[in-house]
Nucleic acid binder design. Structure first.
Length: 816
RNA sequence: GCCUGCGUGGUGAAAUGGUAGACACGCCGGAUUCAAAAUCCGCUAGCGCGAGCUGUGGCGGUUCGAGUCCGCCCGCAGGUACCA
């Protein structure tokens, strides 16, 4: 047979489509697997990162179908979001048509890659039907008190009169008009994710083993639970009068109460209310105010790098010693963590140290290392022994923390507190292409929820997108409505939702079969059967936000009674990025590879094989054109060598003992490949080594000529490779095996039985020679053999130790 | 800045603490061919004629034995809450 990928792939893609080959069954008595890749944003065309992502999930889906599971492998589009509006600004396209045209194009690309998605469950989150249910959930969450409004600081472009995403701020200026941005305080909607902070943290334990350690650690750090001491720093007399008694103190939080006697200054965030008061009441000179404003308008990342600050010429009193402590504004103090104010201990905190050095503030060391000397040129941040700490001298860090907190509490100076880095999730966006937040502002009733029967609140289509202002706000009629409570004239909320909201529950929607889509978001019976997702596959860049939000929604839905489990994703596989010339593929760098061109030239199977073979999935994947060529050649060879096999409906039966050395070797390699393949899906996901195993088996088959062994080899190898290169494997399987081999394969243990083993012999850990030893030989005999073979290195030496690693090697430790 | 990873031949990579470089790509050599493409076979970490020596970003440590474990340093990547 001549390998012609174009016709062959089209043939099987049509076959799969016509036979509905990949639709899940509604027979819930069967064992299931839910295989899910993170769905794409419809940016226009697939990029290699997508190809990698869906090739991985497709391999899992196909493997488990072979193993006779009922497999759900759905696909959709995360289709709301900023790029649709950016395209509108740039090209005058309508976000909706831009989005849906992109979806059509990308769907075709998907199916030309042979992905075994359930076509019937395709969805786009910008569909009104999706919005309808999402808005209903938002109302549920509001009723539960999980959604609230408060002021938040946003990037504001004073020229375009619009809110900017962090991404749209380039070096502190608006991406479109270059106007320096300012921070503006605006009313925003927030999900109370912090209410679930402890559970989100504790349940990470349930994910151990299923999720990469790395991701668990990142989430743990993000939630950032820390215990410590919260107390007030009181102003001394002069400062009190300077502030006209408007403030008597401010709150600080520390995780290191053991360093309390080392406090040498205090620092406030530039957004702190005391700072604000001083600016408004002309208590600061213009230079100081300018410095504070520039801190406020720098991104929090920039602010952490180069530390800067200004003194407020205020003093507070040390809570224990009564000593005066100067108060500064410092850019590295963030308003949204803790209370926006810190006690600074430069001797024992690196940031405080850098700041103190820069501004020549005093440094008081109070913790000494258990061993060695304090280095005066650096902060000593580890635990140690206290000194210069009055009654607590001599205690170690840990016990002193307990005593110091107790000391504060008994004197009502402060209290033990738990703090989280996790902040509530701001979900409102002042943009058009998103799901409208289903609320109404009524002069009489205030903030009112829309009635569920009025959902969806859909977007108007006749809008103008210019990049200035909020399109929904500017629409002539859309926002005018009746109050759902009192029926008076009212104004609809013009904010839309963060697109992370859609991706926080799409995996639940996929559980619903299409017949019920109009009626309900999903049924509890379907959810109970399909969830949790058995393998969730996506980019490492989603390790924190998306995954945390999806976990949060799952817990909220549980508490709303929609489902009965705590975590949505049992096993997570985070894939690395696709690189070319050492850098992430991107249009601006001009180093992209177009999947369509690749399929056109070599076919989908080649693209899939290259992607799975070139690197393990978690690692970055470096693109290499000639390696793609190599993948193509392998498939061609695989297809051509079917000339060595015969047609059969059953696996050939072979008498192993009667075979030649080469024939035995070929069978060993084939069955080794099978063992490796099964292991890959269980835990390691290293498709590259699975494919290497198949290549070794092919090479071994090629060293012999027995038709039975060739046929047995193909029966098994084409089953192993079907998840990777499905088109060619279905073709081979149909032609020779009537598709009977695409099923779970049995490992024949008898093939692995051997009579002797090779042992490496090393001297002092350095490998020297090799010996062959009969299975079951005693250690003494093995050592004797090893000594004999390594005699040359042992001359005149004394053997001090002999180590035998069973089945592997002998190490002889010698000295002169 | 902070959090999390990664670093092995010319290249992509492989190696439950146990013979570093499996499997590929590329290079080189050979077969086939009038010639080439395609295909097939062989070789390929570096140094050395050789016995051998040196090698997993750098420096130290633990161990009979370290690419693998620990500490410090360097470089690169992802995330950093309105990109998704």
């Amino acid at each position: 047979m001549e390998y012609n990928p174009k016709d062959l792939e089209k043939k099987w893609q049509n076959f799969w489509k016509e036979n509905r080959s990949f639709e899940p069954s509604e027979d819930f008595s069967k064992e299931k697997k839910y295989i899910l890749s993170m769905f794409p944003f419809p940016s226009g065309r697939l990029h290699m990162g997508h190809v990698r992502n869906y090739t991985l999930s497709d391999a899992f889906a196909r493997y488990y179908r072979q193993q006779n599971f009922n497999v759900l492998h759905p696909i959709g589009f995360d289709s709301f979001g900023m790029p649709a509006e950016n395209a509108a600004i740039k090209n005058g396209s309508h976000p909706k048509s831009w989005t849906y045209e992109n979806i059509e194009y990308m769907k075709n690309e998907f199916y030309s890659l042979g992905f075994s998605f359930s076509r019937e469950r395709e969805l786009a989150t910008s569909d009104e039907l999706y919005t309808k249910f999402e808005q209903a959930f938002i109302i549920d969450m509001y009723e539960k008190g999980l959604l609230y409004r408060k002021k938040g600081l946003l990037n504001w472009c004073p020229h375009d009169l619009t809110v900017l995403a962090n991404e749209q701020v380039v070096e502190g200026c608006c991406w479109r008009c270059d106007t320096p941005i300012v921070k503006k305080d605006m009313n925003q909607y927030y999900f109370k994710i912090t209410q679930y902070g402890d559970e989100l943290l504790d349940d990470l334990k349930k994910l151990e083993g299923g999720w990469p350690k790395q991701v668990l650690t990142m989430q743990e750090n993000w939630i950032g639970k820390s215990n410590g001491l919260e107390f007030n720093l009181f102003f001394e007399q002069d400062s009190l009068s300077k502030l006209k008694n408007s403030f008597e103190s401010f709150d600080v939080f520390t995780t290191r109460p053991d360093t309390i006697y080392g406090v040498s200054y205090a620092a406030l965030a530039p957004e702190h209310e005391i700072v604000k008061y001083m600016i408004e009441n002309a208590l600061l000179d213009s230079q100081t105010i300018a410095a504070i404003n520039s801190m406020k308008n720098t991104s929090s990342i920039e602010r952490q790098k180069e530390k800067s600050g200004v003194p407020l010429y205020l003093d507070v009193l040390h809570p224990l010693t009564g000593k005066k402590i100067p108060v500064w504004v410092a850019n590295f103090v963030l308003m949204d963590y803790g209370s926006g104010a810190v006690m600074a201990v430069p001797a024992h905190d690196e940031r405080d140290f850098d700041f103190a050095k820069k501004y020549d503030l005093p440094i008081y060391a109070v913790i000494a290392p258990y061993e060695g000397q304090l280095n005066p040129d650096a902060a000593f941040t580890e635990a140690g022994k206290l000194f210069n700490s009055e009654n607590f001298d001599g205690m170690n860090s840990k016990e002193s923390q307990v005593h110091i907190i107790e000391y504060f509490e008994t004197r009502n100076l402060g209290k033990k507190t738990t703090n989280y880095k996790l902040k509530d999730w701001g979900v409102s966006r002042q943009r058009y292409w998103g799901a409208p937040i289903p609320f109404v502002h009524c002069d009489e009733c205030g903030l009112v929820m829309e009635k569920k029967e009025n959902l969806p609140i859909a977007l108007p289509e006749d809008i103008e997108i210019t990049g200035e202002g909020n399109p929904l706000e500017k629409h002539p009629t859309w926002k005018y409505c009746k109050c759902p409570a009192c029926a008076n004239e009212a104004i609809r909320e013009t904010d839309t939702m963060d697109t992370f909201v859609e991706s926080s529950w799409y995996f639940l929607r996929f559980c619903a079969s299409k017949e019920n889509w109009e009626k309900e978001a999903f049924s509890s019976q379907q959810i109970r059967y399909w969830m949790g997702v058995d393998h969730y596959i996506g980019g490492i860049e989603h390790a924190i936000l998306h995954l945390l939000y999806a976990r949060f929604f799952t817990k909220v839905f549980r508490d709303l009674g929609y489902l009965n489990f705590d975590e949505p994703f049992d096993k997570l596989l985070t894939q690395g990025m696709v690189l070319k010339d050492g850098a992430k593929m991107s249009k601006s760098k001009g180093n992209t590879v177009d999947p369509d061109a690749l399929i056109e030239k070599y076919g989908a199977d080649t693209a899939r094989l290259f992607i799975l073979f070139a690197a393990p999935p978690t690692q970055e994947l470096e693109w290499n054109d000639s390696a793609v060529e190599g993948a193509y050649k392998f498939i061609k060879r695989f297809y051509d060598r079917t000339s060595r096999i015969y047609k059969t409906d059953t696996l050939p039966v072979i008498e192993h003992a009667l075979l030649s050395k080469e024939e035995k070797f070929a069978r060993v390699k084939v069955y080794e490949a099978l063992v490796r393949a099964n292991d890959v899906y269980k835990e390691k996901y290293t498709f590259n080594t699975m494919i290497a195993g198949v290549m070794e088996a092919m090479n071994a088959l090629n060293l012999q000529t027995d038709a039975d062994i060739w046929t047995e080899g193909y029966w098994i190898l084409s089953a192993i490779m079907e998840p990777v290169i499905p088109h060619v494997c279905w073709d081979v399987s149909k032609e020779y095996f009537s598709l009977k081999n695409l099923s779970a394969q049995k490992v024949l243990e008898e093939v692995f039985v051997v009579e002797s083993l090779k042992f490496g012999v090393s001297i002092n850990g350095k490998s020297r020679t090799e010996i062959e030893v009969a299975v079951g030989e005693s250690n003494e005999n093995i050592i004797a053999l090893a000594k004999e073979s390594a005699a040359k290195w042992l001359e005149g030496m004394t053997i001090v130790k002999e180590i035998v690693v069973p089945g592997k090697l002998v190490n002889l430790v010698i000295k002169a």
